[in-house]
Design a protein around this nucleic acid. Structure first.
Length: 638
RNA sequence: GCUGCCGUGGCUCAGUGGUAGAGCACGUCCUUGGUAAGGACGAGGCCGUGGGUUCAAUCCCCACCGGCAGCUCCA
């Protein structure tokens, strides 16, 4: 009985097999077709190669192209295939790491010369060749000294470093395909012929081990899919994403611009300013509802403030400084210290709490030149910033309030669900264990109460308290933090803030920092990509444009625009002597929600022929009726 | 900041060691047109900036400025 094992299949069937049965053979035993289709197997929850043997009872599910694990296996093997091709073309190549990432894979390598885009095609061609040779992929374990010898023999210091980093007792595994062998834990496809649908995408630099003090390697990004259609779709989606790039849309729609004399600092053009201020007006309405009081605070503070707040020690290299009358001043990178000064400017009572300050103040941060990008990472911006000063027992309720505000705003703006990251206590932190535990528990409680999905990000809290970050992705799949809710047990201490509690004692307030859109700039960037520039009626910089069919009706078009303006809409009239088709085309390209065509017929009947940017020609409707409908639509924030 | 790439009319982009082109946009004129581009003519460029190589540089080299991708960073 020791020489057989029981294998449980996904359908519950149990197979008795000799001990040491090979997974590939097992697949063929179950069905010839499965033997052909299988790429690997999930054994007791772990994904393994088909060449592995089973020595104990196990539950086994074979991975075919239909399974989600297939993609990872294929991509990882594709990274190896790429390395094999590179090694053929550049025998001196040294390799770093080549992992699977969200939409593909990459491999870092040191090459004798800089790669050019044309090289990708050559490498790809070589990959196709190696795949066509359909090498069997074999796994073998090596003792540590042999593994190190292998790395040295290949003159591959990076691999050597990786091997040295492994725990001494562990088996070190290698995978070979044809003439190529690589250090790897696998799993991999059974043979290179199984990798069919792939594409190399880009070349970039990347520091060895992500450390900017270590050498920079060349990184090739690529992707692979199980079938041609998925690959095609993915490549197409990438192209589409480029069309939605907010920098392109912002230029095309005349929303904002940049100038070399103010690097990384957006200029909002009239239409962009309408959008910007429209968002602020909207937020102000909510602030009244949610109990925030807006304040206006200085732009520049004496450096003493930044020494109190800790920015001078921790954040100085990201700040702008100036000296006047021999006194050093710093431009604010954040609003919180200013708010702390306001809170501390007089004796505070528990009756005033929670005290909520909101601030749209302009912030400046010196971001390193390589990190700035469009509206998503800028040096001059404004946040929908708010700080609540409150007694510790109010934290739970206040967090919930922040959540309600966030949900309301994201719903009104039609944003997709953000990923919520919970940053818990980092290694370097201040405050007692008790208060941290309590604060973290309160965050989790609020998440639970509201049924919010979230991801744990252990140790990612601020040094002064735990936080929630709300992440969304831009058109190119890059993640951006928009909202944040942070608990702060530090500020009251540093600024010596206190309030008179009900029992007559002085107590330290806790501070909650929160921003819902994050920065207006970044939000507009992400929102542009989210909407593709098709803003809802209530936010559109130009909500409607009146198009006269011929010059005779321009006066009527103007009177229509006048009525609409009086009804509160942002309207333009196309007075060019163009054909109606051209006006419609241009209006559509400007992504204006409503185009109102007026000719003799409309003038006669006091109507407008409505063209909805989503559904096209809607026919004529009385102007009054249109105004009512549009106002209702604005009210619904559609 | 690091690695690489890029910088030509307002925009999108061709192009060449002998001081420049297209389409769109713009202007004028013609056209009075009904749901995604009517026509003709015209104006518009220190070819990012500064050095160098050369008889000659928008083109080659260097530096700087700005942008893009990735890395690192985002208290």
């Amino acid at each position: 009985m020791a020489d057989t094992i029981a294998i449980t299949l996904p359908d519950g069937k149990v197979l008795e097999q000799p001990k040491g049965v090979n997974l590939g053979e097992l697949a063929r035993t179950i069905a010839i077709s499965l033997g052909k289709k299988a790429l690997g197997a999930v054994v007791d929850g772990k994904t393994l190669d088909l060449q592995r043997d089973l020595t104990a009872n196990a539950s086994v599910k074979f991975v075919t192209e239909a399974d989600p694990q297939a993609l990872d296996i294929i991509r990882h093997s594709c990274a190896h295939l790429m390395a094999q091709a590179v090694k053929r073309l550049f025998p001196e190549a040294q390799f770093g790491v080549g992992p699977v990432i969200e939409n593909g894979f990459y491999y870092d390598m040191k090459l004798p010369r800089q790669l050019e885009p044309a090289d990708l095609e050559k490498i790809e061609a070589e990959m196709k060749k190696a795949a066509g040779e359909d090498f069997k992929v074999t796994r073998k374990e090596m003792p540590r000294p042999d593994a190190l010898a292998w790395a040295d023999e290949r003159h591959d210091p990076f691999k050597r470093e990786l091997i040295e980093g492994f725990p001494p007792g562990d088996a070190i595994t290698f995978y070979s395909q044809g003439e190529f062998t690589d250090l790897c834990t696998g799993p991999h496809v059974p043979s290179t012929g199984r990798i069919k649908h792939f594409k190399l995408l880009s070349i970039a630099g990347a520091y060895w081990r992500g450390d900017e003090k270590r050498p920079m390697l060349q990184r090739i990004y690529g992707t692979a899919f199980v079938d041609a259609k998925s690959l095609e779709e993915h490549l197409k989606a990438r192209e589409e994403a480029v069309k939605r790039d907010h920098r392109k849309l912002g230029k095309e729609l005349g929303l904002f611009m940049f100038h070399p004399l103010a690097p990384a600092s957006p200029f909002f053009l009239p239409k962009g300013a309408l959008l910007y201020n429209g968002l602020i007006t909207y937020l102000r309405g909510l602030y009244r509802e949610f109990g925030y009081q807006e304040v206006v605070t200085p732009q520049i503070f004496a450096s003493e403030l930044w020494k109190i707040s800790g920015h001078y020690d921790n954040y100085r290299e990201n700040m702008y400084f100036t000296t006047a009358e021999e006194r050093e001043f710093g431009v604010k990178p954040m609003n919180c210290p200013g708010h702390a000064l306001m809170f501390g400017s007089r004796i505070r009572s528990y009756r005033e709490l929670p005290l909520r300050f909101a601030d749209f103040g302009r912030l400046h941060r010196f971001e390193r030149s390589g990190v700035v990008s469009g509206l998503t990472r800028v040096r001059s911006f404004s946040q929908d910033d708010g700080h609540t000063f409150l007694a510790p027992e109010m934290i739970g309720e206040e967090i919930e309030r922040c959540f309600l505000l966030q949900r309301r705003i994201y719903k009104d703006l039609g944003l997709s669900e953000p990923t919520i990251l919970v940053g818990t206590r980092p290694e370097k932190s201040i405050g007692s264990d008790e208060i941290w535990k309590r604060a973290e528990a309160l965050l989790f409680e609020a998440l639970k109460k509201l049924g919010q999905a979230h991801v744990l990000n252990p140790g990612d809290g601020a040094f002064y308290g735990p936080k929630l970050d709300f992440q969304v992705r831009d058109a190119l799949g890059r993640a951006w933090q928009l909202a944040t809710i942070q608990l702060d047990f530090n500020m009251a201490e540093r600024f010596d803030l206190h309030f008179s509690a009900q029992d007559g004692t002085n107590q330290r307030p806790v501070v909650i920092h929160r921003a819902i859109l994050g920065s207006l700039e970044r939000f507009i960037g992400v929102y542009l990509e989210h909407t593709g520039g098709h803003f809802p009626l209530w936010l559109a910089p130009v909500q409607m444009k009146v198009l006269p069919v011929m010059t005779d009706v321009v006066p009527y078009a103007k009177s229509v625009a006048d009525r609409l303006e009086k009804a509160g809409f942002r309207v333009e009239v196309d007075e060019r002597q163009e054909k109606i088709g051209a006006m419609i085309r241009d209006g559509a390209l400007e992504k204006i929600p409503y185009l109102l065509v007026v000719g003799a017929r409309e003038k006669e009947g006091g109507t407008v022929a409505v063209r909805d940017h989503k559904s096209g020609d809607q026919g004529a409707i009385a102007l009054d009726a249109f105004i009512v409908k549009a106002q209702e639509q604005v009210g619904r924030r559609e």
